[in-house]
Write a protein that binds this DNA or RNA. Structure first.
Lengths: 271, 271
DNA sequence: GGGTATTTGTCCGTATGTATT
DNA sequence: AAATACATACGGACAAATACC
């Protein structure tokens, strides 16, 4: 058994103290100079140990303040199998309200752009086809919770669904609007879930640590009509550290006995 | 606009070269000493830049060899909405075969243990209740792909489903075995998906980088009988970097099960 | 607002150990 | 065995962020 490097030994010692509760969550660790004396090592070695703890999300450093044990976060639960739901944002608002938190959604940023890669592939369009994209930021308790971008083929616009390019919230949902306007109904969908590192934009928006150790979960939902033809693609990005996802194989008709609180629809209060 | 630290500038320069394709995937980066001269920085600063790339899984270092651009991996796709049951391992084998790779599963390690925390909660048992656990490692092309542990309440054993504690693969699947033996049918399930850091065991088994920057995806599937009562809990762990997951809202076109029963029109009605 | 002390961040240099070829 | 390249560890210096007076 090879001996562990010194910085690992120090890191393990600190980790043990954290996980055993000897050092409380949220409390401050000794400063680098104090740890230097306690462990009889150089400051750089202490810093290597702290870095090891940082990559494991056990501690965080705040310049000018110190090193702190990270708080435990109870993940927000997102239901992916919202079978009968109408419009993701409606589901979102009622679900968020059910967990007694305050939802907020920005006014969509609407663009017409070309579809490449996954977007074109999922929508069944040729590379470079024009699509309408509607981008929103969704907040919970004034903290950014998810980034959502929906893409719609340009043909819907040409066929008369002109509200798709208006930068305003579509209350019953854009999918319902397309159904009402064009008679194209979404009867199913396909979700693809991937985990990846955040890009720079996501890092700043979510306020993630700049070293990119916190992953994001990206969920592509492709809505399908009764011929299995794609109607829309909605890409939603969540931080991986404070979200989890639940899928039910059948409609939750008997939710009553579950631990899930009843869904209280929130009145569309403000903007 | 604040100026970036030197190590970040160097890292960004290397990142740009990698992502633009100027440096091929899998190829070797210049050595630290060469980079030191190219960027006119100290070796430690070069190492800080390389570390930044490492945490983003862009490069990897091999002692004695050099620094290499990581290969792009095409993720293995797992279908979570395998609707009509049939045992997860059966689905697994056919799916893996369909992607023309070679599946392999270890003989299960069977234990009788106490259920705590999520296991007890998901199975609807009191803390400390006895459960049967069956643990398997699943390989694709001789590389560990997922770790799977299923938990069954002890009452099934007492009621006669004795094969549950036998350390052998149950070919049609344990769920089907319970249905055949006890008449308890699984009519639905609930999946919970979380992303977390790997523990030490998972790090070694999957051969993940020891600094724990690659997350794992853990999926809990709770099987439910027709009363919504939990039958079993299956926890499966995947590496987050080489897997993605697909969920379909309805059976794929292959299943002609019931042509068009109550297809819930999305957006038809809701709260 | 300013100044100062504290604390982490960046950067340098050097030396030695360990893994691979 | 020797050469190469990364890993660990030490030391020092200054910058930047924060808190407090």
């Amino acid at each position: 058994m090879a001996e562990q490097p010194l910085y690992r030994q120090i890191a393990e010692d600190l980790r043990q103290k954290i996980e055993s509760g000897a050092v409380a969550r949220g409390s401050q660790l000794p400063t680098e100079l104090e740890l230097r004396e306690q462990h009889n090592a150089s400051r750089n070695t202490i810093r290597d140990a702290v870095k090891w703890l940082i990559t494991r999300s056990l501690v965080e450093t705040r310049p000018g303040q110190g090193t702190f044990v990270v708080e435990k976060i109870d993940p927000y639960v997102t239901e992916l199998s919202s079978g009968s739901g109408g419009g993701e944002s409606a589901v979102y608002e009622s679900e968020v309200a059910a967990q007694s938190r305050t939802p907020r959604t920005t006014v969509p940023r609407v663009e017409v752009q070309q579809a490449w890669g996954v977007i074109a592939a999922e929508l069944g369009l040729a590379e470079g086809s024009m699509v309408v994209s509607r981008h929103q930021q969704r907040f919970i308790d004034d903290r950014l919770w998810s980034l959502q971008t929906s893409f719609y083929p340009m043909r819907f616009l040409e066929q008369g669904a002109t509200r798709l390019i208006q930068a305003e919230n579509m209350q019953p949902g854009a999918v319902k609007y397309i159904a009402d306007t064009l008679g194209v109904e979404e009867v199913g969908y396909r979700d693809t879930i991937t985990v990846r590192s955040p890009d720079m934009n996501e890092t700043t928006l979510f306020g993630l640590p700049s070293d990119g150790r916190v992953a994001v979960v990206e969920i592509f939902r492709t809505g399908l009509d009764d011929h299995g033809k794609p109607i829309r693609l909605t890409a939603t990005v969540f931080t991986a550290d404070r979200n989890k996802f639940v899928i039910r194989s059948q409609a939750p008709t008997t939710v009553a006995d579950s631990a899930t609180p009843g869904l209280r629809a929130v009145g569309s209060d403000n903007d």
